[in-house]
């Protein structure tokens, strides 16, 4: 269990992390989302005592600095290529193992696990971003820790790699580990995460389960196709709080659920050819939730 309480950090007048408090539960994958510059990496660095700031993060009740061998309890990777280019992947892990009282043989085990066994003796200067991410995950798993903190681990992975990463993180969570992972790949996050922490300009926007986030920041719509779409549109517009978009024989209705639309169509003797509830995506919810707090906004060419 990770408990972050009142994390805050500022650079001069600019607030990078604004009084963030949240919990990351064991047995779940918790996604950490926010636009560029929202303060995700800074928050993770604060949690790991890499940056100085305010607030407290407890890992199973203990501060990071109070843990004798942190790598055995928290596997953290914040940068994809945080290794020396001329030290082999195996030696990189053996070095970290030596600092944590972990047997050197564990380096070979985790390299096998992430699929880098064949290149373990090679200098990693030629590693692709995807291979570097795999080495990073091997580093995080070196101490077989109950908690993982990963910043953008899917960056640079090919589709197979992303699928593999999702399976690995889901299975680690299923073992009861606490997984806290940031990503810009929202479709991937929607498949991987159970819970979300969403921030914008350093402040909390949402903390809870994925479905709740989508419900809170999007309006579900009902798709209707009918040869009498205009009659049904008039009937629906008569209800309060209902929005209707009519396009040819197709209606997109929000503010009522699919059952109500069906009933109204029946009462008005309107024949339907399709009646479908459309659930909004995590991406749509994310864009709605964060559009007001985007740090860097580009124009349209």
């Amino acid at each position: 269990m990770i408990t972050a309480e009142a994390l805050h950090k500022h650079y001069g007048d600019k607030v990078a992390v604004d009084d963030l408090s949240f919990e990351v539960r064991p047995g779940t994958v918790t996604g950490f989302l926010g636009p560029n510059g929202a303060g995700k990496s800074t928050t993770m660095r604060l949690m790991l005592d890499l940056d100085h700031g305010g607030g407290v993060t407890l890992f199973d009740g203990r501060r990071f600095s109070a843990i004798r061998h942190p790598a055995r309890e928290i596997g953290a990777v914040l940068e994809a290529k945080a290794f020396h280019p001329t030290r082999s992947a195996r030696d990189h892990l053996r070095m970290l193992a030596a600092g944590s009282g972990i047997p050197a043989s564990r380096a070979d085990e985790v390299l096998e696990l992430v699929g880098l066994a064949e290149v373990k003796r090679k200098k990693p200067d030629g590693f692709s971003l995807g291979m570097a991410q795999r080495l990073g995950l091997a580093q995080a798993l070196l101490g077989d820790p109950p908690t993982l903190i990963l910043d953008e681990p899917a960056n640079g992975l090919d589709p197979h790699g992303i699928h593999w990463l999702r399976d690995v993180l889901r299975s680690l969570a299923a073992e009861g580990r606490t997984i806290f992972v940031s990503s810009h790949l929202l479709s991937e996050m929607s498949l991987m995460a159970d819970d979300l922490v969403v921030i914008g300009r350093g402040a909390m926007i949402y903390n809870g389960d994925v479905d709740g986030f989508v419900r809170e920041f999007t309006r579900s719509t009902v798709l209707v196709r009918s040869p009498h779409a205009d009659r049904l549109a008039d009937a629906l517009r008569g209800l309060g709080g209902v929005t209707v978009d009519l396009l040819g024989g197709e209606l997109r209705v929000s503010g009522v659920d699919v059952d109500e639309v069906g009933e109204i169509a029946f009462r008005h003797n309107v024949m339907l050819r399709e009646l479908t509830a459309e659930t909004a995506s995590l991406e749509a919810a994310f864009i709605t939730a964060t559009e007001a707090v985007e740090e860097y906004v580009g124009g349209v060419a």
């Binding site: 890499l50 942190p70 928290i74 953290a76 940068e79 945080a82 290794f83 280019p85 600092g99 944590s100």
Partner: peptide, 11 residues
């Protein structure tokens, strides 16, 4: 090379 992060999360 950015190894200060894995170094400080180890020591």
């Amino acid at each position: 090379y950015g190894t200060i992060q894995p170094t400080l999360t180890t020591v």
